[in-house]
Structures are given as C-alpha cells and as structure tokens.
Computed example of a mutant assay.
Amino acid sequence: MEVSTVLSLLQVDLGELHPSEQRLAYLTQVIRAAQSFMEREGISLNDSAEDLQLVELYAAYLVRKRATQEAMPRMLRWALNNRLFHQKTQSGGGPGV
C-alpha cells in the first residue's frame, strides 16, 4: 500500500498541510499502525481507493483519539466490518462467516 498517498490524504483531513519532519514521521508511523491493526483484524489491504481511504480514516481516528480519548466512531467500525465481510464473501466464506 502506498503510504505517501495515505499520508497526503491524512494531512488534508487533519488540516496539516505543512507539518514538520518530526510530525511527518509520526503521521507515517500512525498510518503503518493503522494498517497493522486492520491486518490483525483479518483485513487484507490492497491499493484500491476504498482501502486507501479506509486506512486514512483509521489513521485520522488514531491521531484524534490521542488528544480526545474518544471511542472509535461508529461509521469507522461499520466500514471496517463491512470491508472484512466483503473480503470473506469474495473468498468463499471461511471462519466466522
């Protein structure tokens, strides 16, 4: 997955168009963490626009959560579940489906 594309989307979402090098490194790490968290849930990511956006949404949540301690938005949880369900139905089912 192209981290630089997700990073650009994340910067716009957060309103951080000219972050420092340290902030860029942090945001890049958050993107990688979001990818890992999603893969741990069983989601196989690809370079589709949908997956890029989903990783960006998850990363933005992680950045904002750090400041507010809010629970995961229902919209994001729904999107993750929907993505996993779609993946399982495309692969012919499997455990949990």
Rank of each mutant, 00 (worst) to 15 (best):
W78L: 07
A67Y: 14
G92F: 02
N46G: 11
V3W: 08
Q22C: 08
F85R: 09
N81T: 04
E56R: 13
R40P: 03
M75S: 15
I31T: 06
E16T: 09
Q87H: 05
V6D: 08
E21V: 03
N81R: 08
S4P: 02
L80W: 08
L62N: 08
S36E: 14
R23I: 04
Q90N: 03
L54G: 02
R40F: 10
E39A: 02
N81F: 10
V6G: 01
F85K: 01
Q22N: 11
A71M: 13
R40Y: 05
R74F: 10
V12Q: 14
I43M: 12
S91L: 04
Y58F: 12
H86D: 05
I43E: 00
L80Y: 00
R74V: 15
R32P: 03
V3M: 00
E70M: 14
E56M: 13
P19M: 00
L45H: 00
F85S: 01
E70L: 13
S91T: 03
R83D: 04
E56C: 11
Y58T: 14
R74Q: 15
E39Y: 01
Q90G: 01
G94L: 03
T68Q: 12
D51L: 02
S4W: 08
V55Q: 00
E16Q: 08
R66C: 07
L9H: 06
M75Q: 13
E16Y: 00
M75T: 14
G93T: 03
V63F: 01
R77S: 11
V6A: 04
P73L: 11
L52Q: 07
Q90K: 10
R23T: 09
A49P: 04
E50L: 12
A71Q: 15
P95H: 02
Q29H: 15
A59D: 08
R77M: 10
R40G: 12
G96A: 03
V97H: 01
K88G: 07
E50S: 12
L52F: 01
V97E: 03
E16H: 06
V30H: 03
V12A: 14
L9Y: 01
P95N: 02
E70R: 13
Q11I: 10
L24Q: 00
G15D: 13
S48A: 06
L27A: 07
L57Q: 13
I43Q: 02
F37R: 01
T5I: 03
L62H: 01
K65A: 12
K65W: 13
N46S: 13
L45W: 09
Q22D: 11
E56Q: 11
H86V: 03
A33H: 14
L57E: 13
A33K: 15
Q53I: 02
I31P: 04
L52S: 07
A25H: 12
R32T: 15
Y61G: 06
T89E: 05
G93C: 07
A60W: 07
Y61V: 04
L24N: 09
E21H: 01
A60F: 00
T89N: 05
Q35I: 11
L76V: 12
A34M: 07
K65G: 05
R77I: 06
S91C: 08
L7K: 07
E39M: 11
Q22S: 12
E41W: 06
G94E: 00
V63G: 05
